[in-house]
Amino acid sequence: MTSNLSLEQSIDTVLQKTEKDILLNLKNSSIKSKETLDNSLSTLEGEFDKIISDGNKEADKIGKQIIGSADLEARNKQLMALEEGVNKVFSKALDEITNTARSGDYSNLIKSLLDESTKILGTTEVIVSTNTKDKDLVQSTLSQFPGSELSSELIDCLGGVMIKSKDGTTSFDNTLDARIERLKPLIRKEIASQFGVGN
Protein backbone atom coordinates (compact mmCIF):
# COMPACT_ATOMS: atom_id res chain seq x y z
CA MET A 1 0.00 0.00 0.00
CA THR A 2 2.77 2.34 1.11
CA SER A 3 4.76 1.75 -2.08
CA ASN A 4 1.64 2.37 -4.19
CA LEU A 5 1.03 5.65 -2.38
CA SER A 6 4.59 6.74 -2.83
CA LEU A 7 4.42 5.76 -6.52
CA GLU A 8 1.23 7.75 -6.95
CA GLN A 9 2.81 10.72 -5.22
CA SER A 10 5.83 10.47 -7.51
CA ILE A 11 3.61 10.20 -10.54
CA ASP A 12 1.60 13.19 -9.35
CA THR A 13 4.77 15.17 -8.82
CA VAL A 14 6.01 14.26 -12.28
CA LEU A 15 2.63 15.06 -13.77
CA GLN A 16 2.46 18.39 -11.95
CA LYS A 17 5.98 19.26 -13.05
CA THR A 18 5.25 18.23 -16.60
CA GLU A 19 2.00 20.17 -16.58
CA LYS A 20 3.83 23.18 -15.21
CA ASP A 21 6.55 22.83 -17.89
CA ILE A 22 3.99 22.42 -20.62
CA LEU A 23 2.01 25.41 -19.42
CA LEU A 24 5.19 27.46 -19.18
CA ASN A 25 6.23 26.34 -22.62
CA LEU A 26 2.81 27.18 -23.98
CA LYS A 27 2.96 30.56 -22.29
CA ASN A 28 6.45 31.23 -23.71
CA SER A 29 5.39 30.03 -27.10
CA SER A 30 2.36 32.25 -26.94
CA ILE A 31 4.53 35.23 -25.99
CA LYS A 32 7.03 34.37 -28.73
CA SER A 33 4.26 33.92 -31.27
CA LYS A 34 2.82 37.28 -30.25
CA GLU A 35 6.26 38.84 -30.55
CA THR A 36 6.78 37.26 -33.96
CA LEU A 37 3.34 38.40 -35.02
CA ASP A 38 4.00 41.91 -33.69
CA ASN A 39 7.35 42.02 -35.43
CA SER A 40 6.02 40.68 -38.69
CA LEU A 41 3.18 43.17 -38.57
CA SER A 42 5.52 46.05 -39.35
CA THR A 43 7.25 43.98 -42.06
CA LEU A 44 3.83 43.02 -43.38
CA GLU A 45 2.74 46.64 -43.32
CA GLY A 46 5.94 47.56 -45.13
CA GLU A 47 5.37 44.87 -47.74
CA PHE A 48 1.75 45.89 -48.03
CA ASP A 49 2.71 49.53 -48.54
CA LYS A 50 5.34 48.53 -51.09
CA ILE A 51 2.86 46.38 -53.03
CA ILE A 52 0.31 49.20 -53.00
CA SER A 53 2.93 51.77 -53.99
CA ASP A 54 4.30 49.52 -56.78
CA GLY A 55 0.74 48.86 -57.91
CA ASN A 56 -0.03 52.58 -57.95
CA LYS A 57 3.16 53.29 -59.90
CA GLU A 58 2.30 50.56 -62.40
CA ALA A 59 -1.28 51.82 -62.71
CA ASP A 60 0.03 55.34 -63.19
CA LYS A 61 2.42 54.10 -65.87
CA ILE A 62 -0.29 52.17 -67.69
CA GLY A 63 -2.64 55.15 -67.36
CA LYS A 64 -0.01 57.41 -68.93
CA GLN A 65 0.57 54.88 -71.72
CA ILE A 66 -3.14 54.65 -72.54
CA ILE A 67 -3.71 58.39 -72.39
CA GLY A 68 -0.51 59.09 -74.36
CA SER A 69 -1.39 56.63 -77.11
CA ALA A 70 -4.98 57.86 -77.31
CA ASP A 71 -3.85 61.49 -77.47
CA LEU A 72 -1.39 60.70 -80.23
CA GLU A 73 -3.89 58.67 -82.19
CA ALA A 74 -6.44 61.47 -81.99
CA ARG A 75 -3.83 64.05 -82.96
CA ASN A 76 -2.65 61.94 -85.90
CA LYS A 77 -6.20 61.55 -87.18
CA GLN A 78 -6.64 65.29 -86.88
CA LEU A 79 -3.41 65.84 -88.85
CA MET A 80 -4.54 63.48 -91.60
CA ALA A 81 -7.96 65.16 -91.78
CA LEU A 82 -6.30 68.57 -91.97
CA GLU A 83 -3.94 67.40 -94.69
CA GLU A 84 -6.85 66.03 -96.66
CA GLY A 85 -8.59 69.40 -96.38
CA VAL A 86 -5.45 71.29 -97.38
CA ASN A 87 -4.93 69.00 -100.39
CA LYS A 88 -8.52 69.51 -101.52
CA VAL A 89 -8.12 73.28 -101.36
CA PHE A 90 -4.79 72.96 -103.16
CA SER A 91 -6.11 70.85 -106.01
CA LYS A 92 -9.10 73.16 -106.42
CA ALA A 93 -6.76 76.15 -106.59
CA LEU A 94 -4.60 74.36 -109.18
CA ASP A 95 -7.69 73.59 -111.28
CA GLU A 96 -8.63 77.25 -111.22
CA ILE A 97 -5.12 78.27 -112.25
CA THR A 98 -5.18 75.77 -115.13
CA ASN A 99 -8.46 77.15 -116.40
CA THR A 100 -7.53 80.81 -116.03
CA ALA A 101 -8.12 82.82 -119.22
CA ARG A 102 -4.80 83.53 -120.98
CA SER A 103 -5.38 87.28 -121.35
CA GLY A 104 -5.28 90.54 -119.37
CA ASP A 105 -3.58 89.94 -116.00
CA TYR A 106 -2.20 86.64 -117.17
CA SER A 107 -0.25 88.21 -120.01
CA ASN A 108 1.19 90.68 -117.51
CA LEU A 109 2.14 87.70 -115.34
CA ILE A 110 4.01 86.04 -118.22
CA LYS A 111 5.86 89.28 -118.89
CA SER A 112 6.90 89.61 -115.25
CA LEU A 113 7.94 85.94 -115.11
CA LEU A 114 10.17 86.45 -118.13
CA ASP A 115 11.52 89.68 -116.66
CA GLU A 116 12.37 87.97 -113.39
CA SER A 117 13.93 84.92 -115.05
CA THR A 118 16.19 86.83 -117.45
CA LYS A 119 17.27 89.12 -114.61
CA ILE A 120 18.21 86.10 -112.47
CA LEU A 121 20.21 84.47 -115.28
CA GLY A 122 21.68 87.88 -116.15
CA THR A 123 21.01 87.60 -119.88
CA THR A 124 18.23 87.72 -122.42
CA GLU A 125 20.12 85.31 -124.65
CA VAL A 126 17.91 82.47 -123.53
CA ILE A 127 15.75 79.64 -124.79
CA VAL A 128 12.27 79.75 -123.30
CA SER A 129 10.09 76.69 -122.83
CA THR A 130 6.42 76.71 -121.96
CA ASN A 131 3.22 74.64 -122.34
CA THR A 132 0.71 74.48 -125.21
CA LYS A 133 -1.73 76.94 -123.64
CA ASP A 134 0.85 79.67 -123.02
CA LYS A 135 2.84 79.16 -126.23
CA ASP A 136 1.26 81.98 -128.23
CA LEU A 137 1.26 84.40 -125.34
CA VAL A 138 4.93 83.74 -124.59
CA GLN A 139 5.86 84.00 -128.27
CA SER A 140 4.26 87.44 -128.52
CA THR A 141 5.92 88.64 -125.30
CA LEU A 142 9.40 87.45 -126.31
CA SER A 143 9.72 90.31 -128.78
CA GLN A 144 10.45 92.49 -125.75
CA PHE A 145 13.46 90.29 -124.86
CA PRO A 146 16.11 90.61 -127.60
CA GLY A 147 18.10 87.46 -128.24
CA SER A 148 15.51 85.18 -126.66
CA GLU A 149 13.80 82.41 -128.57
CA LEU A 150 10.98 80.00 -127.90
CA SER A 151 11.86 76.34 -127.70
CA SER A 152 10.01 74.07 -130.05
CA GLU A 153 9.73 71.50 -127.26
CA LEU A 154 6.69 71.98 -125.08
CA ILE A 155 6.78 71.23 -121.37
CA ASP A 156 4.11 69.83 -119.11
CA CYS A 157 3.18 72.48 -116.54
CA LEU A 158 0.29 74.60 -115.28
CA GLY A 159 1.69 77.71 -116.88
CA GLY A 160 4.64 80.09 -116.81
CA VAL A 161 8.08 79.68 -118.36
CA MET A 162 11.30 77.76 -117.97
CA ILE A 163 14.38 79.51 -119.35
CA LYS A 164 17.80 78.17 -120.18
CA SER A 165 20.95 80.05 -121.21
CA LYS A 166 21.87 79.38 -124.82
CA ASP A 167 25.09 77.59 -123.80
CA GLY A 168 22.93 75.28 -121.66
CA THR A 169 24.92 75.74 -118.43
CA THR A 170 22.32 77.59 -116.37
CA SER A 171 18.57 77.42 -116.21
CA PHE A 172 15.77 78.84 -114.15
CA ASP A 173 12.41 77.23 -113.64
CA ASN A 174 9.78 79.93 -113.36
CA THR A 175 6.76 77.81 -114.16
CA LEU A 176 3.74 78.20 -111.93
CA ASP A 177 4.35 74.62 -110.72
CA ALA A 178 7.87 75.51 -109.55
CA ARG A 179 6.71 78.70 -107.87
CA ILE A 180 3.91 76.86 -106.08
CA GLU A 181 6.38 74.16 -105.02
CA ARG A 182 8.76 76.78 -103.60
CA LEU A 183 5.98 78.45 -101.66
CA LYS A 184 4.08 75.29 -100.77
CA PRO A 185 4.96 75.29 -97.05
CA LEU A 186 3.74 78.87 -96.70
CA ILE A 187 0.61 78.21 -98.76
CA ARG A 188 -0.15 75.13 -96.62
CA LYS A 189 0.22 77.23 -93.49
CA GLU A 190 -2.11 79.85 -94.94
CA ILE A 191 -4.74 77.24 -95.86
CA ALA A 192 -4.41 75.56 -92.45
CA SER A 193 -4.97 78.90 -90.74
CA GLN A 194 -8.28 79.14 -92.60
CA PHE A 195 -9.22 75.89 -90.84
CA GLY A 196 -8.24 77.50 -87.53
CA VAL A 197 -4.92 75.67 -87.20
CA GLY A 198 -1.66 77.38 -86.42
CA ASN A 199 -3.16 80.78 -85.59
Binding site: I120, G168, T169
Partner: peptide
Protein backbone atom coordinates in the same frame (compact mmCIF):
# COMPACT_ATOMS: atom_id res chain seq x y z
CA UNK B 1 19.93 87.43 -104.14
CA UNK B 2 17.92 85.25 -106.46
CA UNK B 3 17.65 81.60 -105.51
CA UNK B 4 16.56 78.86 -107.83
CA UNK B 5 19.21 79.01 -110.56
CA UNK B 6 20.16 75.58 -111.76
CA UNK B 7 23.72 74.86 -112.95
CA UNK B 8 24.57 71.91 -115.10
CA UNK B 9 28.35 72.25 -115.27
CA UNK B 10 29.70 69.81 -112.72
Amino acid sequence: AEGGVQYSKI
